[in-house]
Amino acid sequence: MPAITRDEVAHLARLSRLALGDDELDHLAAQLDQIISAVARVQEVAAEDIPPTSHALPLTNVYRADEVRPSLTPEQALSGAPAAEEQRFRVPRILDEEA
């Protein structure tokens, strides 16, 4: 049985916002199956009582003072925008209300 099904791969593509064609999905499904089978080795490690590590170094409490710093100009902010209008980023119509 494969580690991941074609349907799951299609679901991942939607979650990842990638409009993939059928060929690409097929190709990826095979590769992901191989990779996931390989990385599943992490499950061999008997690690019930092992704490997880999320950061390389154990730093804590890094803060900045509540001070205002210069912002970009609107021109700079919008300089890379694919489309802009009324000093705002113009985006295609949005289907859903905010999640």
Binding site: A40, Q43, V45, A47, I50, P51, P52, T53
Partner: peptide, 15 residues
Amino acid sequence: DAYYGKAQQVRTLIS
């Protein structure tokens, strides 16, 4: 838990 979680535990073991 099975993937990301385990991988983070491996990180501890490597450390």
